[in-house]
Amino acid sequence: MMKLRQLADLSGNSETYIAHALADRGQSLGDSPVYVQFLTAIGGWLSASFLLAAWGAFFSLGSSLSYYAIPALMGVAAGLFLRWKFIGVFVRQMGAGLLIAGQVGTGLAMTDWGGAGSFTLVALAIASITLFVEQKGFAIPVTFAVVFSGFATYLLDHDTGVLRDGIMAATCVFAGLSTLMIKFKGFRVEFIGLMALLALVIYAEISTFQWSAQSAVFQTRGNEQPVLHIWSGKTAVWLGTLALLYWSRRFLNHAEIVLTLIVMTGFFLVMPFASVAALFLLLVGATLGWHPAAIAGVIAIIWTLSRYYYDLSFSLLQKSMLLMVVGAILLGAAYLAQRHMARESAE
């Protein structure tokens, strides 16, 4: 009951009032089984795609792909309207289907007209409108996922200098921390944060492979530019870890902060960019006490580890040695931390 009392003190409400409010949350979660909602959602999405395709067929007279921006934007508008006005699962999902399919359609038209950069800007505008119309629904993180994908495509396609990976990492880290560590009244933005950190992991993986393939194909191992790209990305994530620790200093003790810094710095120095991004996701989840993010981080670490097998920057023997050393250091750090915490609790 301790936590309820602390929350009651913070919010100025009674413990019973908070307990009742949270019990309501449980009731609202149990409306109908998840798989029914999932299957209904599929129906909504299918209807939306057929409707949008039919709508697009009216505009098929145009010779250029950019003509499709008109039906696609109308699909976005119809989707937002349905999600704004209705509460039933089917209609809301149909709205989501129209919204997302419309956004992707707009993206294709924009890419044809002005490239991935203009698509990102339009997608960001749509996502911002969605945020204000919807405030709490799942269409927000999905539309932001479209924004992050557009931005990542733009960066990966263009030669944007040595800070390319740094820009993407800083954007994702900023979006992640600012939506998870600050509460925006009336908006459920935390899933944008989760989406941003997942986008960072995927981007880091693609970027690492782009550079490792390039260095192998053109035999430019030792070329400074790819190395600088990766380091700019890793640095942004490392700085994000410092911000995370600063934000959480009220409830983390010194041992936890030092352990986090040691593990993150170790990864920063020797592990690939994607592993650093995956570890950051795990740290955010563990610091907030948010299981979905922490578990996503663990899965991301295992995934990046398995993908490391195909990294062409080093030979299998070099990677094998590196992984064994990193593993041994992690085991040692965990052992020391466990001993330290046992001694602390004994005192």
């Binding site: 795990l282 663990v298 593993g327 992690l330």
Partner: peptide, 20 residues
């Protein structure tokens, strides 16, 4: 966190052995 660091450590060592 400690359990996870142990698990990640073991995963890295095992991955190293598999790579070897």
């Amino acid at each position: 966190s400690i359990r996870i660091i142990y698990a990640i450590g073991v995963a890295h060592v095992l991955a190293g052995v598999v790579f070897f």
